[in-house]
Design a protein around this nucleic acid. Structure first.
Lengths: 138, 138
DNA sequence: CTTAAAACCTAGTAAACCGATAGGATTATA
DNA sequence: TATAATCCTATCGGTTTACTAGGTTTTAAG
């Protein structure tokens, strides 16, 4: 299940991407428009800034803006930062690999092979979609 | 992330499927062989029985056995029972649909469309794989 | 220079969920 | 009758989630 954090984060990025001018967008504006608790959203936007998706400007007239072009931002990258691994099981994760304690050998594990397929399918979808694609979805 | 419950459940089903004879398999045997806490496993097997995947026999020489043939058991069904929805967001779930509170309209939601694609990709993989397929994975 | 508006930061917290564990009740076989 | 198995209920510590509170700092405008 996708956490609210990730969901809100994606919505916020999409909202910012939809503004053609590059003026900073305030958290309060996104919060109202997307029905997200402002304080919670602030922490998410902060995280997105620290991980290099957003820039920010403090003070009056400040806000958040995209650092890269929307079509350069793959959804895999966004989800990995906000949610963590895309794989459903750590032993199959490319970026967050962890060995299972119970499995003596991954190659004979019935779950492993299945989850590799699921991971690849998801990775395929999320890698093909950019922020541009999802922001302007009708 | 897949819960341990689901992971253990799949492993247990695969273990049972691998036995050619249809004699009941004991929880203790599976627990030892697959390194799963026995009590925890018991509760999972019970759930799999109640949801129609397994039959059971009590008393000496008892245990659990498959009710259907392994190639008739789709992994979608197993995961839905043990884990719940396959979709990453309730508003996109076929079997566990729930409306989002924050979204005024799903059709204009940037997350929605993306998650439909992810769901379909996962559904595709999990629907094509049966217990037979994963049990006898090299 | 003051005020207001914004991001930034730290901490805490209620509720839910997870992965068990405990302790037995029930049932069937030998 | 003893034993081996499933079945059932309850509990529990730990972690995560989704916030909330309460401020500090920076900046622009008046």
């Amino acid at each position: 299940m996708l956490s609210k954090k990730t969901k809100y984060g994606i919505k916020a990025l999409a909202y910012i991407a939809r503004k053609k001018d590059r003026k900073p967008v305030q958290a309060s504006e996104i919060s109202e428009s997307e029905n997200i608790s402002q304080k919670f959203l602030e922490s998410i936007l902060l995280e997105l800034r620290k991980s290099g998706f957003l820039g920010s400007k403090k003070g009056k007239g400040g806000g958040y803006y995209l650092i890269k072009e929307p079509d350069e931002i793959k959804m895999t990258a966004v989800i990995r930062v906000l949610e963590g691994p895309i794989a459903m099981v750590p032993c199959v994760s490319l970026n967050y690999y962890e060995k299972c304690e119970d499995c003596p050998d991954e190659h004979t594990c019935s779950v492993h092979k299945l989850m590799i397929q699921v991971r690849d399918a998801s990775l395929n979808v999320l890698g093909e979609n950019t922020l541009e694609d999802i922001a302007f979805t009708q």
